[in-house]
Design a protein around this nucleic acid. Sequence first.
DNA 1: CGTTAGTGCTTCGAGTTCGAAGCACCCGAA
DNA 2: TTCGGGTGCTTCGAACTCGAAGCACTAACG
Lengths: 176, 176
Amino acid sequence: MTDKSSPASLSPTELEAYFALIEVSSLVRHTVEEQLRNAGGLSYVQFQLLATLGDSPDGSRRMTELADGVVYSRSGLTYQVGLLEKAGLVVRSPSADDDRGVTVTLTAGGRDVLARVFPGHIDGLRQLLFEPLTSEDVDSLARVLTIVRDHMRSNPPRSAKPRRKGAAPRPASGDA
Amino acid sequence: MTDKSSPASLSPTELEAYFALIEVSSLVRHTVEEQLRNAGGLSYVQFQLLATLGDSPDGSRRMTELADGVVYSRSGLTYQVGLLEKAGLVVRSPSADDDRGVTVTLTAGGRDVLARVFPGHIDGLRQLLFEPLTSEDVDSLARVLTIVRDHMRSNPPRSAKPRRKGAAPRPASGDA
DNA sequence: CGTTAGTGCTTCGAGTTCGAAGCACCCGAA
DNA sequence: TTCGGGTGCTTCGAACTCGAAGCACTAACG
């Protein structure tokens, strides 16, 4: 980290990869979002939340886990979970071992909606994203993206930013 | 094409690729957004717009081109271009050949901001996205994502949705 | 035990985003 | 020409999002 010998630009291929990544993910998101809205009145984030909960054996997660899994601000998460709760798809309960914590749990209705929406979601993805790819392509994609994800996860910029205090994790980078 | 024998689920690898795609792009976006905000008071979208304009030989684009390139709603684009114009980074002018059209052009100030912000942007990307990847990885990533992007572009779900007409459940309020 | 630091979640205000509706204009047909 | 449909952009209202600040609790330390 002492020597920043990185040139001020990326290779053409890197740029291409970056732009394509952004465009593809945006398009996927938009398309899927629309499909979800029609199918079950869910926003993309809400679907992600339900799906994350459904992924858990007991259908429960802590708020923080949800925020990390969905890359969402805490406050936004509070808002969305509030909506889902109002819609009866999840319930909030105080965490067992930590009185500060809140556990979010999928209700039967939540599972229902999830089950109703999922097939269309999958199908949309298949057509939009995977149709033109060979299984080899999918392999590379998954492999490379997983590498990147793990790299990012192990790096600081998570949602769990240390609250600005004494220890400055901010390396005062070129701030004017 | 006549038989849609697609199963209702995706392979594990496909799911993995999908989830990683979403998480990576979200993280990239968030991180970059924060960096941009510190460096130049730009949101990610604003940066994308400036960069798109900067990419054009004469620094101009039509609104629709911008919306397509950035995957943005038309109204959101209007809003953001309004902000950029107010900040003096772009100007709007009526299109030459089509009176409906609006051409957005980068100003000197806009180029300036872009130039000031770009290095940090690139550097952030390098560390966040490309550091753990070999050039081979980058190649695959770019290749596969480009395939997907082209596929998506050639498919209907662009911003140019045909406007709903005839079969409208619209009450007879105005005119028909 | 008390104090201080740190964490989990929510509230708050301001800014952003979207789709639908609307206006102005282009184009093809009669 | 005059229509009638389609396109380009903006306006509008409602919903979403975020960071900062705040509250409640736990953990570390004497």
